[in-house]
Every structure is written in structure tokens, then in C-alpha cells.
């Protein structure tokens, strides 16, 4: 399954209970198989932008397109099964085993049992968790890093064309974090899954993204390859954000 394209067309979001816009005039395209990091300070709208893709947030203006199709025209539940979703808090289902967690989207999609089993084993191996040891484990028995891996494997369960990750490596220590970044990047590149991930860590963005989308105050400040952002920051904000990462 190759990656889908994502298009943001003048996307704006205004929450009913807040003054000011959470997002204003966000427009950019993500190519099939591309890995794009969204960075910026907290409250800059990066999580909101991510959540417009699977319609957990509905834009108040503009449109989000997957493979050229406006996501609003799709059934939200069907759309989300095609779009992988992994979050910092992981949210593994505590009453299910690791295998049941990873196989949950295929099971919602109605795959036959043996195809789900093969998919689960394949994904667990890809995130370096021995299926024999981990399949039947409960989430409570996993370390932080193991849980994050299962979270990413679960997000990829239904062979999604798009993977959304919100601070997926946030809750682990620095060494585990670096290993996870490399492994997950390798997995999504092997699978060709178009990946959008939110992080507040510019080093993480520089390390694994093809392009970085720098956001501030609900707007895109700059969208470019890591080297280009370091060499030619478009605004003072971008320069300050990446200061110290230049070495």
C-alpha cells in the first residue's frame, strides 16, 4: 500500500469557546510517502492541524484533501480507518492484549482472522517486538518505549495511506527516544506511508523529516527541507526556534 497525498487548502479553524483563530490560512501539500514534521511552540495550532486530517477537528474554512478528495465528503469513521493515528499518551486499550490492540483496525475493517494475525506479527516485528513474547501481553506490562512501539504498530494496522502522529516519542527517555525515532522512520519509509507528525522537539524534526512545517500563532511560518530551514530561516521566529540546532 503506497502513501496517499495530503492537501491543506487555506485551512482555518476557530474554536467556538476561544477568541482568535487556532489556524489561519494554512496551505501546503504533502507528497505520497513524504515524512513531514510540524513543529512550533505549544498552542501554535500544530495538533489542531494534524487533527483536521482525520476530522477529529473540522475546519471552519478551507478544505483538507486526501488523494485530492475533500475529507468532509467522506464518512468520518471510514476515513479514520484509512488514516493511522498515534498519540503521545498512546492510549493502548487496557482490556486487550498487544495483538488485539495492533489488530483492532483490521478487525473493525472486517479482515479475516488469519490476515489480521499475519499483519499483527509483521508489524510487531517491524517495530522490534518479538511477536512470540509480546502478542499476548497486556499493555500494563509494557515499558514506556514498548507501549509507544505498540501504539505506532496499532496506528499502521489497517494499512493506512496516511499516518498521523502527535508527539509519538514524547513519553520516553532520550536513548529509547532516539532508537524509536530511527525505527519508526524506517518502518514508515519501508511501507511508503505518508506521515505527518507533530513535535515540539526541533532535533527530532531535523532528524527524521523530509520537510519541516514551522508553525506559530496558527500560521505556517516556513515549510522546507531541514537543511534549507537551517540555512535560510524565513523569519526571526524560525531562526530563534532552530538556534542551537545548527551545529
Amino acid at each position: 500500500m503506497s502513501g496517499a497525498t495530503i492537501g491543506f487548502d487555506d485551512v482555518g479553524v476557530r474554536y467556538a469557546d476561544a477568541d482568535g483563530d487556532a489556524l489561519r490560512g494554512v496551505s501546503f501539500d504533502v507528497a505520497s510517502g513524504e515524512v513531514v514534521a510540524i513543529v512550533g511552540p505549544s498552542g501554535c495550532g500544530k495538533t489542531t492541524l494534524l487533527r483536521t486530517v482525520n476530522r477529529l477537528v473540522e475546519p471552519t474554512s478551507g478544505a483538507v484533501l486526501i488523494d485530492g478528495v475533500d475529507v468532509r465528503t467522506m464518512d468520518a469513521v471510514a476515513l479514520r480507518r484509512r488514516v493511522g493515528y498515534a498519540i503521545q499518551a498512546v492510549g493502548l486499550f487496557a482490556h486487550m492484549t498487544v495483538a488485539e490492540n495492533v489488530g483492532i483496525v483490521p478487525s473493525l475493517l472486517g479482515w479475516p482472522r488469519d490476515r489480521i494475525d499475519r499483519r499483527v506479527d509483521d508489524l510487531l516485528e517491524r517495530v522490534h517486538l518479538d511477536p512470540k513474547r509480546f502478542r499476548d501481553r497486556r499493555p500494563r506490562k509494557l515499558s514506556g518505549g514498548e507501549a509507544q512501539r505498540v501504539g505506532v504498530a496499532r496506528a499502521l494496522g489497517g494499512e493506512p495511506g496516511v499516518l498521523l502522529m502527535d508527539e509519538p516519542f514524547g513519553a520516553v527517555d532520550a536513548i529509547v527516544r532516539a532508537a524509536l525515532q530511527d525505527e519508526v522512520t524506517r518502518v514508515v519509509r519501508d511501507l511508503g506511508t505518508t506521515t505527518l507528525f507533530v513535535t515540539h522537539d526541533v532535533h527530532e524534526a531535523l532528524r527524521i523529516a523530509d520537510r519541516i512545517c514551522v508553525m506559530n500563532g496558527g500560521r505556517v511560518e516556513q515549510l522546507d527541507a531541514p537543511a534549507a530551514i537551517l540555512a535560510n530561516p524565513a523569519t526571526d521566529f524560525v531562526r530563534r526556534l532552530f538556534e542551537g540546532a545548527r551545529a
Binding site: L56, V77, R82, I87, G91, L92, A94, V105, G151, R154
Partner: peptide
Amino acid sequence: VDPAQIDAARGLGFSERQ
């Protein structure tokens, strides 16, 4: 119920009933 599990379930494509 852990809100992270609810968010994950919704984001993964559970219907409200599921």
C-alpha cells in the same frame, strides 16, 4: 475511562457505538 484510550479509539475509526 482513560481519555487517551477514548481519543485513540475515535481517531482509529471506532463508531460511537463501537
